[in-house]
Design a protein around this nucleic acid. Structure first.
Lengths: 207, 207
DNA sequence: GTCTATAAAGTGATAGAC
DNA sequence: GTCTATCACTTTATAGAC
């Protein structure tokens, strides 16, 4: 049996192909036929393993967001609530886990899937994301509120929304600002994080 | 003949319905059948008037972007190249025409269509937008470069990209931050412009 | 210009053999 | 758990009557 080799199980192969094709062609644009062909599995396997295309879409998000948001919350926990907490520290807790995912090889396309989810104003998808991961944004917003007590609620929501938009856009367009071959991977990631953090911090702190 | 009434010609009706359905369901998600039904025209009318779905998509962009980017360029012309030009003035030239469109009643959904075009990394669509409207972003970027001479080319591109992402996101999500009924339309628009300009200016100017 | 009718291909989902 | 075959539609696009 070749099952002991580095061949992923069917379910993982489908999730991987789905992530790539959803990123490139959208949720409606990528058909189950393209997707199962790319994964090298049978067409019927999607319905067997996931029940429907919609539930496959949810699993694509769940697989990445459980880990991504877990890391964000852990990082936030470490820097928040202290007397010396900085805006920059909180932003890093939000951004760095996403950049790590973006450079993961696998997973590098997930931020583009997430950017599509933002552009789709699909109610079902938004409810799924809000119910499962809404607490993350609420926690970060609460910490920003604590660090920026002079801002009105309205002003704060505006700025957090603008930061979210800027970061999602930037991270989904990742790879557009190419890493030069003489810059090592990790240094490039740190420079990117610095660009994003500096910009977002200035926007949040603006008078 | 009722044709002299306020009934729009077929071509305009199709463009209007297409804009709304592309905003709500995406380019692949909205079918020509839904679209022609919403416009109250025959299915075959799309191919008669536009040739194909792809060319209809291009016309949806052209109809709004010719005017929107024309106004942006005119506004930029007025404020740029002066010794007293400000970052805020240049940002207003970019933002205010888009907000006017967003509150136009008709056209209020176009920014969502534009946000989708960003999320789609479709090469054909990107080339169309770049060839026809790329000069606008280049002109604005050049003016930012003049006003922020201490920034490296790389740093400048990063910040302009982040501003673009933030603004597109914010304007496509428009209406989420609701205008309260006791605030008049124009005042609400001016307040929104101020939020966006303040945030973007701070990000661009950050040390 | 607008209509019906239809071609030709693609869609998600499922039943049932293995 | 994986396969083939197929159902029941929907898709874009077009030919040809009016």
């Amino acid at each position: 049996m070749p099952a002991s080799q580095a061949v992923l199980p069917t379910k993982e192969r489908i999730l991987g192909a789905a992530e790539e094709l959803f990123a490139r062609h959208g949720f409606e644009g990528a058909s189950l036929r393209q997707l199962t062909a790319a994964a090298g599995v049978n067409l019927a396997a999607v319905n067997y393993h996931f029940g429907s295309k919609d539930r496959l879409i949810e699993e694509v998000f769940r697989r990445r967001l459980d880990q991504l948001n877990g890391r964000r919350m852990a990082a936030l926990q470490e820097v928040s609530g202290q007397p010396d907490t900085t805006i920059e520290g909180v932003l890093a807790a939000f951004i760095v886990p996403a950049l790590e995912l973006s450079h993961d090889g696998s997973g590098s396309l997930f931020m583009r899937v997430l950017a599509r989810a933002f552009a789709e104003h699909d109610d079902t998808l938004r409810r799924f994301l809000s119910e499962n991961y809404g607490h993350v944004m609420r926690q970060f917003t609460a910490e920003f509120a604590r660090l920026l007590p002079h801002l009105s609620k309205e002003e704060l929501y505006w700025r957090v929304d603008l930061v979210t938009g800027a970061l999602t856009h930037a991270m989904s367009g990742f790879g557009m600002i190419q890493r030069k071959s003489d810059v090592p991977e990790q240094q490039h990631r740190e420079q990117t994080a610095q660009h994003l953090i500096r910009f977002a911090a200035a926007g949040l702190k603006s008078p």
